[in-house]
Nucleic acid binder design. Sequence first.
DNA 1: CTTATTCATGAATTTATTTCATGATAATCA
DNA 2: TGATTATCATGAAATAAATTCATGAATAAG
Lengths: 307, 307
Amino acid sequence: MLTLKHLRSIEAIHETGSITRAASRLYLTQSALSHQMVGLETYYNVMLYERTRPLRLTPAGERLLELAREVAPRMEACERDLQRMSERRQPGRLRIAVECHTCYDWLMPAMDAYRSHWPEVEMDLVGGFHADPVSLLADDRADLVIVSEPGRAREVSYEPLFRYEMLALMASSHPLAAKSRLEAQDFAQETLITYPAPDRLLDLVRRVLKPAGIHPERRQVELTIAIVQLVASRKGLAALPAWAVAPFLERGYVVARPVTAHGLWSDLFAAVRSEDATRGYVRDFVTTLREQAFMSLPGIESVPESS
Amino acid sequence: MLTLKHLRSIEAIHETGSITRAASRLYLTQSALSHQMVGLETYYNVMLYERTRPLRLTPAGERLLELAREVAPRMEACERDLQRMSERRQPGRLRIAVECHTCYDWLMPAMDAYRSHWPEVEMDLVGGFHADPVSLLADDRADLVIVSEPGRAREVSYEPLFRYEMLALMASSHPLAAKSRLEAQDFAQETLITYPAPDRLLDLVRRVLKPAGIHPERRQVELTIAIVQLVASRKGLAALPAWAVAPFLERGYVVARPVTAHGLWSDLFAAVRSEDATRGYVRDFVTTLREQAFMSLPGIESVPESS
DNA sequence: CTTATTCATGAATTTATTTCATGATAATCA
DNA sequence: TGATTATCATGAAATAAATTCATGAATAAG
């Protein structure tokens, strides 16, 4: 029988163009999703997608996608209403702390989307720099913190959001632009342009350069646009999320290259107090973060289980 | 997770005002439906219906009902479209034969409802009287026959529709009106007014009077309204489906009484060729018959499994 | 007050879903 | 063009979910 689960699957397959990627986004194995689709196809005796790469929906698949788009939001709205009815306490509050500079790019639209679903939830951003932002949860100064690594404290629950690739950025006239990927040694003689943040938060430094014993000259700038401008002016290299550099590549002054053989991928998690993790408005905020990110950020993936 | 099944359940509970009756209409045990509801209630941590008789939906239950009403028809429309896509043969044909006179009362509206879902299916009514209407299927003179008893031939599939109670009808001034229920002997000295049909099709005669060896005087009339008129004029008794007599009871000239201790219940089935039983447009016709009947005929029930 | 009904619940059963392990097929790249 | 890597399909096993059966408790009807 047709379920919401099937509709979500069709949407994910359509959006990712692949059973494997869709499965990962749905937190399923590739096999489970394949079985699920074969089951649907057998039940209705139709093909739902062409077995080509990239995979495309057939007319029958498109029809299901259409259903998903008209039906899924209504079911979700109903679920939110039920959650509201069950939590007869005060409407919730979400004070959000963010560790990474670029996070604001996707956090703001996500908060907007969330506000329309949960108008009664009061949202706030916790400003300032904090050595250990997760401790803001226990101190009751924040209710949700965006971090790049899950901790292991039992009082805090870490919800995976997504992962993105960090790309090395250089002027298109830079000699290193000739290489298809950069390694740690390539940075040795360069200036590294970063946000003003401790090394712990700079994935390139912490996970690539420091382990290789390489400590390039450094320069710190606040704004992404300023970093790109300095790179274009051949003042040094930078490492930024793939989705953040995409708009600048079109103009051709800078180029982006992966770092190390498999690329430098960073994960993001939402940390919440474990007692809050099951609340409807909190879970829905996390879900909204994921949805909005996958909708607007090109090239991101879901966090693999092992992380 | 919320499924279409849950929505159908909520609808059935709302319409029947009882877990037991809803379960029977959904072809489930009472227990299964109870578990299902408790599961939903636990998942969302809300009550869905008041534990009173008759049972009423809570606001949370009403919210689910609202969802059901906006979402279920869309899912059904999509399923029909998929079925159409899978059957790339000729659009179907439905020649329908009917055994019982009163069937036309609910069959016509049901056919209208069905026509809007399957405009490409050509419907026709097979007229005339037939000693063995089910044989019309094998003879390819009909595609679906409404009958009151399932046969056991393997080439024919019998889909249960619903059951209704036959009530004895008499003038309100008739002495028997004093009794709360009638027995076979009560008919011995009366005239029985029936449709012009063989005894085999008259449930009162076949299942009550004949077994008791009672053969009252008879009079045959074509139209339901004429039967009621004769009864009101004290020309005799009649037995008609509860839903067919309901409109005449209001005026007060006739009264209706159950027959025998547990009432005289008649079942209805749709007989189709087994090869047709799985076709989308056929299954949907049967589903539409059930739906429309339960929607418009008061006091009917679903056919118990054993029948 | 007794007798029906009706709903809830625990245990057992059946059915469905998911994963694991692996094979087949198609795309990519030296 | 092979060799290599990606991706999807599939069967068997494991896990999870839904359904039934048997029964108890609560509620309405006679």
